[in-house]
Simulated assay, not measured.
Amino acid sequence: MPSTATKRYCFQLTVRPELLDEYIARHTPVWPEMLAEIAAAGRRNYSLFLGDGGRLIGYYETDDDEAARAYLANSEVAARWEAEMGRFFVGLEGRPDQAATPLTEIFNLHDQLTAAQAAATATENESTAS
């Protein structure tokens, strides 16, 4: 059974350097119907960051990424968008929204602060119980 807790996802792609200006223009703005499909899929707080050499980092949050991916894979709007976007990327097999290289999260400030606060509270409770 999929978890209902919000999870963070990050991915990396490389935009062809000769197409950077056009890639940026295509996202300024994205088609309204594509924005609606991303939201309907359950992805939130979605951002793309462009670095040197065409390095593209994407980030989003969702409660069920498997369901979000399936929704977008079956979306006619997303299929049209991804068909147009595929030519912008280096070394990509398949649709960009389905084939991007995922990155592993190794640190999150909120999660670690929450864990540290919980540990401190537990230690405090143990001290007062003794």
Results as ranks from 00 to 15, higher is better:
86 G>L: 04
66 E>T: 06
43 R>T: 00
95 R>V: 05
85 M>V: 01
72 L>W: 00
55 R>M: 04
58 G>M: 15
48 L>W: 11
45 N>H: 11
89 F>E: 13
63 D>G: 13
49 F>W: 12
63 D>I: 06
50 L>M: 10
98 Q>M: 09
69 R>I: 03
78 A>S: 13
86 G>D: 13
78 A>I: 05
85 M>T: 03
56 L>G: 02
94 G>I: 02
50 L>C: 10
54 G>F: 10
98 Q>E: 01
78 A>T: 14
86 G>H: 12
50 L>T: 11
53 G>P: 04
66 E>P: 01
58 G>R: 09
92 L>R: 10
95 R>A: 02
74 N>Y: 12
88 F>M: 04
51 G>I: 15
63 D>T: 08
78 A>F: 03
95 R>G: 07
87 R>H: 02
80 R>Y: 06
76 E>P: 12
72 L>I: 05
75 S>Y: 00
66 E>N: 07
43 R>G: 05
75 S>L: 01
89 F>L: 09
97 D>E: 14
81 W>S: 13
56 L>P: 06
94 G>T: 05
92 L>M: 05
89 F>G: 01
83 A>L: 03
58 G>S: 15
87 R>E: 00
92 L>V: 01
53 G>F: 08
83 A>W: 04
71 Y>K: 08
78 A>C: 10
75 S>E: 13
91 G>D: 15
66 E>D: 12
65 D>C: 06
92 L>C: 01
47 S>W: 12
57 I>W: 06
52 D>Q: 15
79 A>W: 07
53 G>E: 08
49 F>T: 15
87 R>T: 01
89 F>P: 12
45 N>A: 11
71 Y>G: 04
70 A>K: 11
64 D>S: 04
70 A>D: 15
46 Y>V: 09
53 G>S: 13
80 R>W: 07
94 G>E: 11
71 Y>N: 08
98 Q>D: 07
93 E>P: 00
53 G>V: 00
59 Y>T: 07
57 I>R: 02
67 A>C: 11
